[in-house]
Design a protein around this nucleic acid. Sequence first.
DNA 1: CTGTTAGCGCGTTCAC
DNA 2: GTGAACGCGCTAACAG
Lengths: 332, 332
Amino acid sequence: MARRPAVVTIADVAARAGVSLSTVSRALNGNPTVDPALAERVRAAAAELDYTANPWARSLVSGRTQTIAVVVPDLANPTFQTILRGLGRAAAADDFHVLVSDSAESVDAERTLATTTRRRTDGVILCAPRMPQPDLDALAATLTPLVLVNRTSPDVASVRADYGAALRAQLDDLHRLGHRRILHLSGAPGSASGAQRAKALDAFTAAHPEVDLRRLPCGVDADAGAAAADAVLDSGATAALAFNDLVAVGLLDAVRRRGCRVPDDLSIVGFDDIPFARFTTPALTTAAVPAEELGRAAWVRMRALLSGEAPPPSLTLVPETVVRATTGPPPS
Amino acid sequence: MARRPAVVTIADVAARAGVSLSTVSRALNGNPTVDPALAERVRAAAAELDYTANPWARSLVSGRTQTIAVVVPDLANPTFQTILRGLGRAAAADDFHVLVSDSAESVDAERTLATTTRRRTDGVILCAPRMPQPDLDALAATLTPLVLVNRTSPDVASVRADYGAALRAQLDDLHRLGHRRILHLSGAPGSASGAQRAKALDAFTAAHPEVDLRRLPCGVDADAGAAAADAVLDSGATAALAFNDLVAVGLLDAVRRRGCRVPDDLSIVGFDDIPFARFTTPALTTAAVPAEELGRAAWVRMRALLSGEAPPPSLTLVPETVVRATTGPPPS
DNA sequence: CTGTTAGCGCGTTCAC
DNA sequence: GTGAACGCGCTAACAG
């Protein structure tokens, strides 16, 4: 049984202003074909009654909700938090609301959530780093408007960071410092950025046969980084590149507890530049993924899509290397 | 002009199953007065057509949206992120959606957002740490169902951490260690938890006249903590209690850069136990606010409210002190 | 320029 | 047990 809250409807406003429903609707929606005097009277009545159009009724007829859906794998990940924040604030500035869902790292949930939340919103912005490409393409075909974050699919608007380019820069920096035994903590298998990075790794190996560049499968959080500490130390590598800052932080802490000096004994490089990267000891060298900017850019594309315009071209930002204090020359 | 996407409606299902609209509606809503065989036929038809009821039409008639609104001051704050995560996952488990808004630390925006998002959802969960109590009470009177996080108001469901009790415990620990000159970095003025803490500070001062306990106004983020470093060092205090871990982290980093040894020269205590607190150097002593649990508990109360039940009593969790390595005896 | 009318897609009384 | 009809609150055609 519906609790029907006693709210004021357009009929109340019409009665108070002494006009018809349509006039109220037109006046409040800024339709220019209304007599300015009447429009003013309507606005006054609406204000006195504290009237706001029922969003569901409005959506039912207009097909629009002023709301977008955002799907992320895990709200505990600083990068997604930051993307969400940038996105949310940008959308709010355009009077749009944001429906978030956290897929708990489940690709199935991502697919389901994207579809179900689409039904209650005007479009979806999807972060699905580990969804297989064919699945993503198939999903994208059924989902519009859609903006992808850190993924691409044919004819789909997207914004992404160039993980490959940034990794290349990090490798070059390490090489320039003299490192010849480098370990890459590769994160969970199957991620899209992981593929970009694998390519960069391959290219680097081809270009620098003198470098022993190995990969170590690994998780994506601080615990995973800590768990990898022994393997990293045993590997004899002089530098470790972490999948992200969380992994780097966990690794840094764990190796230091084992008496390893960073960067004297081991250089550590993160990825993302989360807010805390500045505050590790030593401060973490990393690549700054402009997550807030990605969020804003995703909104800009969604907004264009919603107004039927062609969205700005897909955006690729290359994370800038920020050298702090966890990197240095290899031990001699 | 409404883009009317070609979606299947209840009428399509009815036609396919060879029954009336009402039967489809009843069958799909589990109304027991439908012939089981018919119900099955309807479900089959719905499945084949991949039918889902239009949520806006459903909301329009039922008055329910399966969505709740969450308003937070800043999505960049780890505590709110964690609350949101716990809340979101709990709500999702009950098939509810979450509409988030970030007020950008503006009390005005909090008020507005709470009201406007209420109209598109079934209830709101409000984190408004700095809204003056009279304003909060007034807002609460117009907003139902409502669950407050870290605030209370007469007859309003709420979940909170007991900042006073936790601060008391921290002060006792410091006193037991021998500290007699203690500085409290009090955060932005006007926050509710700030008031609780002020009381705890007053009580401690009354009970321990031998202790020089001072307060230093301060912001709520790492930059604020860093900015307070000189003042803290000049004060001659042997221990500093930060408003939250962000402030503590900023302070810790800044004093160490100035050559101050922590905890030998200065003990630092945080508040919240954000994920990163384990990874500072030294690891941060703090009070663990169970943010994820608060989020879950907020949802449990909202769910009760939504089903017309009396919500569980207001919850007050006392953050547990977690002693790590930034605290020790004062310098002798 | 304004009022009347007809849906938007669904849940839910009512009769049958 | 099932179907027809109404109405949720609003916008957009259509007259006037």
